[in-house]
């Protein structure tokens, strides 16, 4: 009889221990490591009673959401308060003056085989008109995007 009681007590004790699980400090550490592994930087985690609070400045909304889902997935975290702020997006400046940008786009288009397109550049914004072969349309748009402009008015038509 005594043995039975002892067993029950021991079992109950063991259960209690595992229910307590990790401490807040352990959880915070696990969350930070997981964030690091997922390449989320600039986010710090504080855990209190299993509730994680995130803070820090992140690049954009996507990173903020990712940080939250990563921490939520850590075993033992009950909920997440996401206080991360978004870094203000800087104003885009063109990579090169207009004539240089124009020359670059024209040469890129030529290399991509996009004949028939005409290029205008004003204040870093590219306007491209004309007709390019349909099969090359995406390649043409890509090469224009890669010139370093800050705007793109796409008036290209798909032809044969």
């Amino acid at each position: 009889m005594k043995l039975k009681v002892l067993t029950v007590i021991t079992l109950a004790f063991a259960l209690l221990l595992s229910a307590c699980g990790k401490s807040d400090a352990d959880l915070a550490k696990a969350a930070s490591e997981k964030l690091g592994a997922e390449k989320v930087s600039g986010v710090s985690v504080v855990v209190k009673d299993g509730v994680a609070t995130l803070s820090g400045e992140v690049a954009d909304q996507t990173v903020k959401a990712k940080a939250e889902s990563v921490v939520k997935a850590v075993e033992g975290i009950k909920s997440v308060t996401n206080n991360c702020t978004l870094k203000p997006v800087p104003v885009a400046t063109p990579a090169a003056p207009d004539p240089a940008l124009k020359g670059k786009v024209e040469e890129n288009l030529k290399k991509a085989g996009c004949t028939g397109a005409t290029v205008e550049v004003v204040n870093g914004k590219i306007t491209v008109k004309g007709t390019v072969p349909e099969a090359k349309y995406t390649a043409c748009v890509q090469t224009i995007n890669e010139a370093g402009a800050t705007g793109f008015d796409n008036q290209l038509q798909k032809g044969k």
Binding site: K39, A59, D60, V89, P90, V91, T93, K125, T150
Partner: peptide
């Protein structure tokens, strides 16, 4: 942007008056 984060693309954002 989510896709970029997931497929290993590193990027920076900026905004002009007409475009991201």
């Amino acid at each position: 942007l989510e896709l970029a984060n997931n497929n290993g693309t590193t990027y920076e954002l900026s905004e002009s008056d007409s475009a991201l």
